[in-house]
Every structure is written in structure tokens, then in C-alpha cells.
């Protein structure tokens, strides 16, 4: 009961923080909705990266630090190959590359390390991160590249009748959200309706039992890493189209870690909702909280969004150690 009460208090505080600018008149309703939507868009991207984490963690218990590097690698591949061929062909080629990458990782990294401590596996994925970062930039170059999705990037005014001055929305943001939603629906269908999806869920539930009824674990790992690679591809393309493909993508992808903490390591809905909460939270904090903090403490500029996600996740952990939708572990520490 006590836990529930704490959670309620936490949510109440978050909600109060969310609507505070509106109530205190710090911002107009139109601007507030704009910030909210901006946060949701960023959140969708975090969700996409977090989704890759969750997929791999569910199926193999590996905490894949390399997801960010995979996003960068996929985006680089698409950006550079799209210079030589149409975009759809480049995307298909990139999918093939990600599958090959999954094969290589399974064969050279995961299989020799099977049954090791989770920490050792985490370190191994750190090694994979360095390798992929270096490899991607060796092969594809390290400048800033553009991905042109063929969607106009000019902002559109909507809902002018509802809010004073209307709301600015970028078309490519809407497209990104649509792509993410589509991906999630496809994944859900794949997991629920196909034989492979059922095998994946079985492995996620109990990999020993799954192996004993004849599900080939090694093949499942390859499938799951390929899936994570495809998710990384979508995230990378959407992100690259928005910000340009550059090294910082792999750093920004670290933000997906607090997202999975918030949502729980093993929950796909958790990854999505966690991503949205983090996205909205940090945008709101940056736009409304940072100026107050700058004034109060005489700071050299805002930049709260660099750490807000992590501190939010930390607070969540103190109340709900397993995240919003994670599996409950009952053991005393």
C-alpha cells in the first residue's frame, strides 16, 4: 500500500510540474501545447532506441550498451548508400547489413560468453560499442551526412481556431511519429501472431524451458539482434533526417537508458511510455524550469535536459525499483 501511495505522490508531483506553467500563466496555452508536442516527438525517438534495448534484454538477458552505436551505424550506412542508390534500396541494404552484424555479434561475442555474469556481458557490449563506432566511421566516414526522406521540413500551423496564434508542427516530426507507431504495431503483430514471435516470447519467459522443448537459442539470439538492428535502423533514419547523421547520435542514444529504467527492462509498452514521459519531462524542464534556475543560481545557461532524464529515472528507482511495467523481483536486499 505504501508503495502505491509513494507512486501516487510522485505522479501528482510530475503532473503538477507539467501543468504548472499553464496555471501560473508562465506561458500561453498555445505555446504550452507546442512544447508538449515537441517533447512527445523527442520521446518517440527515445522510445525507438529503448525498444531495441528491451528486445535484446528480454530475449537474451544482455544489457546492450551498443544500441546507440547500432543506431549511428545504421544511419551512417543508409546516408552513405543513399548517395549511390535510391533511398528504399539503401534501406534494404542497411537491413541486410544489420542482420549480418547480428550474426557476427552472436557468433563472436555472445556465444563464447554464454553463461557469464550479466556485468561481463555488459562490458562485452561496451567493447562492441567501441568497435562499431570505429568501424562505422572507418568505412563510411565521419562527417555530417544528410538523409533526405523527401518530406518537406517546413513547419505547419494547425489549430489556429483553438489557440491564439496556432501551433507550429514540423511535418517530418509527424512522419517520424507515424513511422514509430507503425513499427510498434508491426512488432506487436510479429510477437503475437507468428511462430517465431511465439518462440521469442517463450525464450523471454524462461530460456531453459524454451531450450528444453527444442527452441534453438542461438538462432533466437540472431533474430532478436537483427530485430534490434532494424529498430535501430528506423530510429537512426528518423533521427538522421531530423538532425543530420553525426557521431553525437550515438551519445544522445544513451538517453534511452533512463527510459528503460523508467519503463522496466522487460516491457515493450514500458519503453514507449517511458520514452514519452522522459521526452516531455525534459522539454518542459528545459523550457520552463531552466530559466528560473538560471536566474536563481546565476548559471551560465540552461542545459538541464542533459541530466534531467537520469535524475528523473533515479527518483523513480527510489519509489519503484522495477520500473513502471518491469517484472517484480521479490527478494530482500
Amino acid at each position: 500500500m505504501k508503495k502505491n501511495r509513494n507512486l501516487m505522490i510522485l505522479f501528482a508531483v510530475l503532473l503538477a510540474g507539467l501543468i504548472a506553467p499553464l496555471v501560473t500563466g508562465a506561458s500561453g496555452a498555445g505555446f504550452w501545447v507546442e512544447v508538449l508536442l515537441g517533447g512527445l516527438m523527442a520521446g518517440v525517438l527515445y522510445s525507438l532506441v529503448a525498444l531495441g534495448f528491451v528486445l535484446i534484454f528480454k530475449a537474451s538477458g544482455v544489457f546492450n550498451f551498443a544500441q546507440g552505436a547500432m543506431v549511428l551505424f545504421a544511419a551512417l550506412s543508409v546516408a552513405r548508400m543513399a548517395e549511390k542508390m535510391p533511398l528504399w534500396a539503401a534501406m534494404l541494404m542497411a537491413v541486410a547489413i544489420m542482420v549480418v552484424l547480428a550474426f557476427v555479434i552472436e557468433r563472436l561475442v555472445l556465444r563464447p560468453l554464454v553463461n557469464q555474469d550479466p556485468v561481463v556481458l555488459l562490458m562485452a557490449t561496451l567493447g562492441v560499442t567501441y568497435f562499431i563506432d570505429g568501424f562505422g566511421q572507418t568505412v563510411w566516414g565521419s562527417d555530417i551526412y544528410e538523409i533526405d526522406l523527401g518530406i518537406a521540413r517546413e513547419p505547419v500551423m494547425i489549430l489556429q481556431s483553438v489557440f491564439d496564434g496556432g501551433i507550429l508542427i514540423n511535418k517530418d516530426d509527424v512522419a517520424a511519429t507515424a513511422a514509430a507507431a507503425l513499427l510498434v504495431i508491426l512488432l506487436a503483430l510479429f510477437f503475437q501472431k507468428t511462430k517465431t514471435g511465439r518462440a521469442l516470447r517463450a525464450v523471454a519467459d524462461d530460456h531453459l524451458a524454451a531450450q528444453s522443448i527444442g527452441i534453438p537459442l542461438n538462432r533466437i539470439w540472431v533474430i532478436v539482434w537483427s530485430l534490434a538492428g532494424v529498430v535501430a535502423l528506423v530510429a537512426g533514419v528518423v533521427w538522421g533526417a531530423k538532425l543530420g547523421v553525426q557521431f553525437s547520435i550515438s551519445q544522445v542514444a544513451l538517453k534511452a537508458l533512463p527510459v528503460v529504467i523508467l519503463g522496466g527492462f522487460t516491457s515493450i509498452p514500458g519503453a514507449i511510455i517511458g520514452g514519452l514521459i522522459i521526452g516531455v519531462g525534459e522539454k518542459m524542464a528545459e523550457v520552463f524550469l531552466a530559466p528560473i534556475a538560471v536566474k536563481a543560481f546565476d548559471l551560465a545557461g540552461g542545459g538541464i535536459e542533459n541530466w534531467f532524464a537520469y535524475v528523473l529515472a533515479l527518483l523513480f528507482l527510489l519509489v519503484l525499483p522495477e520500473g513502471l511495467f518491469g517484472e517484480k523481483h521479490i527478494d530482500r536486499v
Binding site: 555488459l122 542545459g303 542533459n306 537520469y310 535524475v311
Partner: peptide, 25 residues
């Protein structure tokens, strides 16, 4: 309250928060 991988991510909070503090204050 937490351990293992959760704790690993929680310590990232220290990293980014301190980076920010020394860059901005």
C-alpha cells in the same frame, strides 16, 4: 534499493549531473 544493471544506469545520473554542474555553475 537497487543493484546490478539498474545501479549502473543510476550512476550515469551522477556523471551527467556533475558534468552539468561544473559547466554551468
Amino acid at each position: 534499493r537497487i543493484r546490478g544493471l539498474y545501479l549502473a544506469v543510476a550512476t550515469l545520473a551522477a556523471q551527467f549531473f556533475m558534468d552539468w554542474v561544473f559547466a554551468r555553475v
